[in-house]
Amino acid sequence: MFFGISHLILPVTDLEQSAGLWRDVMGFGEAQRGAGFVDIDTGSATLRLAQVQSVEAWVSLRLQVADVEQAYARLLAAGAISRYAPMQTPALEAMACVSDADGHAIVLWRALTEDEWGFVPELPKQGQWLPEAEELLKRLLAHVPALFRMLARRKTTRVIEQLAEEAKSPVTRELVIKGYITASAKITRFRLVEPLRAEGIDPDQYRAEFEYE
């Protein structure tokens, strides 16, 4: 019955000025125009800029951007008014906000990467870990690109705890090394050599794990 949002309506007092902001400054495409409106294709929903005599209610739009500071500066240069400068929030986001010529809020945001969090997340461990084993895995995982680190943390922790269960042992440094290697796809294990060496570990001593299917 319901198919999703087709249009978001943004009342504006200067249609061409607003269209220029969304089209020429922000880079969104103009989908179509008609008497008293311009449709902007934002990629996820159509934003309809609707000409009005005066704006009676302000709208807040939240835009995901690649670089909050760069987008913020670009909008200010185009005449937008700052509501708050780029900042990092407790929700681990980078955010800033400006007002357009009609007072509508344009919130700019992106999720922070783990490298920007300022802390190292805890491992999703369930079993007993020796402190040196846990710290080793955290250091090894720091070499994983931030985009994939959360998935790697879950998978590697699970594999290591399976090895510990089979060995009927708490998680040791040795089990971390073996699990760290075997949790990775065989075709990409060559990428683990340098992180291991950085920890003073000789990869040649773990040829069996590197060849493990």
Rank of each mutant, 00 (worst) to 15 (best):
T157H: 02
L147Y: 09
Y180G: 06
E165S: 08
L147F: 09
L136K: 06
E134H: 02
W129Y: 08
E165H: 07
A152M: 09
W129Q: 09
L141A: 01
L196S: 05
H143Q: 00
E161R: 01
H143G: 00
A133K: 03
L175S: 09
Q128L: 15
W109E: 15
R158Y: 02
E165C: 05
P170Y: 10
E194S: 07
S184A: 15
S169V: 07
E166K: 11
R153S: 04
A111T: 04
E135W: 11
A133M: 07
L175N: 10
P124W: 13
A198L: 13
L136P: 05
K168I: 09
P121C: 06
L147Q: 09
P145D: 03
M150C: 08
T188V: 12
R158L: 05
L140K: 00
P131M: 14
S184Q: 15
V193I: 14
L112G: 01
L163R: 07
V144T: 02
T188D: 04
L147S: 09
S169R: 12
R197Q: 15
I181F: 12
A198N: 14
K186A: 13
L123F: 08
G127V: 05
E114D: 10
E161P: 05
L123V: 06
Y180L: 06
R189T: 04
P121A: 08
E134G: 11
A183K: 04
E135T: 13
L141G: 00
E122H: 07
I181A: 13
F148T: 02
I187K: 12
R110A: 05
I181E: 13
L147T: 05
R153W: 04
T156L: 07
R173V: 08
L175A: 12
Y180P: 04
G179Y: 08
D115N: 08
V193C: 04
P131Y: 12
P145G: 02
L123I: 09
H143K: 00
R110T: 03
S169Q: 13
P145K: 00
W129L: 10
V120S: 11
L130S: 14
P131W: 11
W109A: 14
A142C: 01
P170T: 07
F119W: 11
L130F: 14
H143V: 00
G118P: 03
G179K: 11
R197S: 07
E165K: 10
M150V: 06
T188R: 05
E122L: 11
I160L: 04
L112A: 06
L147E: 12
A111W: 03
R158F: 03
P145M: 01
L175V: 12
R189L: 07
W129D: 11
I160K: 01
P121S: 08
G118R: 03
